[in-house]
Computed example of a mutant assay.
Amino acid sequence: MITLNQKYVLHIPCYKYQDGKLISLKNENIIDKLIKQLNTEGYNSFYITEVKGHYKTRIFNEILITIFTNQEENTPEKIFREWYKENNNILQQESYAYEHGTKMIIEEL
């Protein structure tokens, strides 16, 4: 039996909020880049789901990448943090979020 004791859920928005409106993002290429980075670091098995998010009275589509692992070096949160900062010119978010275990972490940009 294999037990993976670390769970990460990366939250990726599909919309940006600009001038009082939700605007769809063309983020497929940067998501592919994140997936390649995860694969390069040994994260070859994870789940990608599309969900509805709700934030500040706005409802929007969001992509969640769920990873179970025992790996402790170059964690998904480190990879995600760097990826998000590199791509926020496209995502244009005020903050980003990910889950680790039972905690939700929200980091301001």
Rank of each mutant, 00 (worst) to 15 (best):
Y43A: 03
N61W: 07
Y84C: 07
K36A: 15
E62W: 00
Y47D: 15
F80E: 00
E72I: 15
Y43D: 01
E62G: 02
F68I: 08
T49L: 06
T40P: 06
E73W: 09
F46C: 06
I65L: 08
T66F: 05
T69V: 10
R81A: 09
I35R: 14
I48Y: 02
Q37C: 11
S45G: 06
T75C: 08
F80M: 06
E73S: 14
G53I: 00
T49F: 02
G42K: 05
E50F: 02
L38I: 09
H54K: 10
E72H: 14
V51P: 01
Y84K: 13
N70C: 07
Y47Q: 11
L34A: 05
T40K: 09
G53P: 03
E41F: 14
E73L: 12
K56W: 03
T66A: 15
Q37G: 11
K52L: 07
I79L: 13
E62S: 04
S45L: 13
I79T: 04
L34E: 01
I79A: 10
E72V: 14
K36M: 13
G53S: 02
H54M: 04
I63C: 04
I35M: 14
E82Q: 13
I48Q: 13
L38M: 11
N70T: 03
E41T: 05
I65Q: 04
Y55S: 04
Y55Q: 03
E62V: 01
I48A: 08
Q37H: 10
E82N: 13
Q71W: 06
V51L: 01
K52H: 05
T66C: 12
T66G: 06
H54G: 04
T57P: 02
Q37S: 15
N74R: 14
L64C: 06
V51H: 04
I67V: 02
E72T: 15
E73A: 11
K78F: 13
Q37M: 12
I79D: 03
T49Q: 09
T75L: 14
T66W: 04
I65A: 06
T57L: 09
T40S: 12
P76D: 00
E50A: 03
N61G: 10
K33Q: 14
